Amino acid sequence: MRFMVITKASADSEAGVLPATEDFDTMGKFIEELVDDGVLLAADGLQPSVKGARIYFDGETKTVVDGPFTETKELIAGYWLVEMKSLEECVERFKRCPVQRPGSGERTNLEIRQVFQAEDFGEAFTAEQQEAVEQRRAKAAGNG
């Protein structure tokens, strides 16, 4: 099963406060464990929302709103994409994650969400559609 582990934004991350050298070292060791165990598929931090945009869809109308976005509790600051046997395994692994402690009394949290797999969609997702998805994944992997 694939899981996306999401780290939420904080006032510091939205202000562009970067991690200290020690934070990079500590997180690097954790990420290296994920790599060595063969479970890490991807991981990245995200720039503050001031450097982003949202697209709102209302029928045929599309509205673009540039960042920053005010509600940091709704924002993502980074993610890991991992392959684990179960949600429980993922939770246990990420309970050991050396998250940064934000200032101002904010609490840090990680959100874990399972990624859909073909079998989750049932018969509505045909074999041809599944093959097309696999071909796009292979093509995208070749572009990286």
Rank of each mutant, 00 (worst) to 15 (best):
D58Q: 13
G52F: 04
K51G: 10
G67Y: 01
D44L: 15
G122R: 02
F57M: 04
P48S: 04
K85F: 10
V35L: 15
F121K: 01
E14S: 08
D36V: 15
Q114F: 05
C97R: 10
T70N: 14
T126S: 03
D58Y: 09
T21E: 12
M84Y: 00
E134K: 09
Q129R: 08
D25L: 15
E88S: 12
A43H: 14
A42D: 06
V50S: 11
E119C: 12
E83D: 04
S104K: 15
G103V: 09
R113I: 03
A53D: 13
M1I: 08
W80K: 01
R101E: 11
R93C: 07
F121G: 00
E74L: 12
G16V: 06
I55V: 11
D66T: 01
D44N: 09
G105I: 05
V50A: 12
A43N: 14
E92H: 15
L40S: 07
V17I: 15
P102S: 04
Y79S: 01
V39D: 08
L87Y: 04
A141C: 03
V17R: 11
G142E: 03
R107I: 12
T108S: 09
D37V: 06
G38W: 09
Y56I: 08
Q47A: 13
E22V: 02
G16N: 07
D23S: 04
R101K: 14
A20L: 15
C90W: 02
T61L: 10
L87K: 04
F121H: 01
G38A: 12
M4S: 07
G59N: 02
L41D: 09
E60H: 06
L110K: 01
V17C: 06
G122K: 03
G45Y: 00
G38D: 14
L40C: 02
D12A: 06
R107A: 09
S49H: 02
K62V: 03
G67P: 01
F3R: 03
L75P: 07
G16L: 06
E89Y: 02
R107W: 15
A43V: 10
